[in-house]
Design a protein around this nucleic acid. Structure first.
Lengths: 224, 224
DNA sequence: TAGATTGTTAATCGATTAACAATC
DNA sequence: TAGATTGTTAATCGATTAACAATC
């Protein structure tokens, strides 16, 4: 498994990442977490933020944060901190996620409804453009601005809307069959809220949400 | 910040972790992830599993997995793999999470209902023993086997049921005030499903769920 | 100026990986 | 036995941290 893939272009300025080169897994993960805090801080009207404040919220060491950021440019002001708005934009540029991304949501139950009506995805540039369910009784119901569609339409919608990301809020027993259909339709990233272990080809990424695992982990450090 | 805290007892056998010593953050996180896969594999009737299979599902290198496990004992059989059932028990022992843990859920909306009725927490030994809401209209409604209670009762219930973990499925603007009350009542771990940045004293751990961050991260590796 | 916080260095520690003997 | 997979070593790489000069 190779985590960093060189571009061959070895002309980067000292201290800057080589353009066209993939970030290390860890760096990309941390930048995403900084972004989450920054976006929320912006919502709360904060204009600047220090590496120490970011550290308090992300549990990443403040030196590590400054180091991660300084690899891409001098974004901060000594004695002041980082401008929230501009850091959001910088990180989005680094992560190539400045644009809007269309996502499809599967399952119009309680979880699906909660996801579709929250702004947790919207705040990060993800727009839920379609909600699907297999239950004909639910098809046609409105969830926010969207009407629930039947799974049989998934293929057409995914092609039409150029959807790369699917979010699965379906019961575990239904997840694998749905995942197969999604892979077939060209989806590349599956965000799985069920606890099913999904089998997909190597070019497709599955991320399984596992709140209980996170809790176990937090609990361990409380118990010891 | 100190991640490993020595116990002073330096009498461990070679190759085994010192008992009473905290695991490194990374090890604890990975063990939790192995556990998630193992529990799901057990559900599917799998009796043994190889480090390679675990690697496929967790995206952790198979050597790393064998190494993590062999630090605590020889759990595997060469040529065969690991017994799923016994590995579940071993990891639970290592993580000190063999018992049942009571958790309180706040917010009886779509998300709260989804959480309360799923078995994602139950499978890992967490039992939702109370659901709270501030809406008097919802108080008394049944969600699964539980009746929704009003937030004003939280203090009494938390003490009575010995609750250390609270799960927040409430709107962001309400989260901080609720967190303050929970801290006051003695809760030590807050699992936050809102996107609010919660301020808590150092002895309390906040884990904020952030699916969009995970998606951003996955998307980065798709885009590059 | 005085205080605060960045950007950067250097040193250490843990994670990652390939390789392979041991052994089921 | 033959095949598979663990347990373990050794080598490398990235993460983490303290410390501090630079500078806003």
């Amino acid at each position: 498994m190779s985590y960093t893939v060189g571009s061959g272009a070895d002309t980067a300025q000292a201290g800057l990442e080589k353009p066209g080169e993939k970030l290390a897994l860890g760096v990309a993960a941390r930048l995403s977490r900084y972004l989450q805090v920054l976006i929320q801080a912006r919502k709360m009207g904060k204009e600047t933020i220090s590496s120490q404040e970011l550290a308090d919220y992300t549990h990443v060491n403040s030196t590590q944060i400054r180091r991660d950021l300084s690899g891409f440019g001098k974004f901060g002001k000594r004695g002041v901190g980082y401008n929230v708005e501009s850091l959001v934009n910088q990180i989005r540029k680094i992560l190539h996620t400045s644009g809007q991304h269309n996502i499809a949501l599967f399952g119009a139950g309680h979880l699906g409804t909660a996801i579709a009506t929250s702004d947790i995805f919207a705040d990060h540039g993800f727009r839920v453009v379609a909600v699907f369910d297999v239950d004909h009784g639910k098809v046609g119901e409105r969830i926010g601005p969207l009407a629930v569609r039947h799974n049989s339409e998934l293929r057409a919608v995914i092609e039409e809307e150029d959807i790369v990301v699917a979010v699965l809020a379906v019961p575990s027993p239904a997840a694998q069959k749905l995942a197969d259909e999604l892979v077939e339709a060209g989806v590349k990233i599956i965000f799985n809220y069920s606890d099913a272990l999904l089998q997909v080809p190597p070019e497709v990424t599955v991320h399984t949400s596992s709140p209980a695992v996170d809790l176990l982990y937090a609990l361990y450090f409380y118990l010891t």
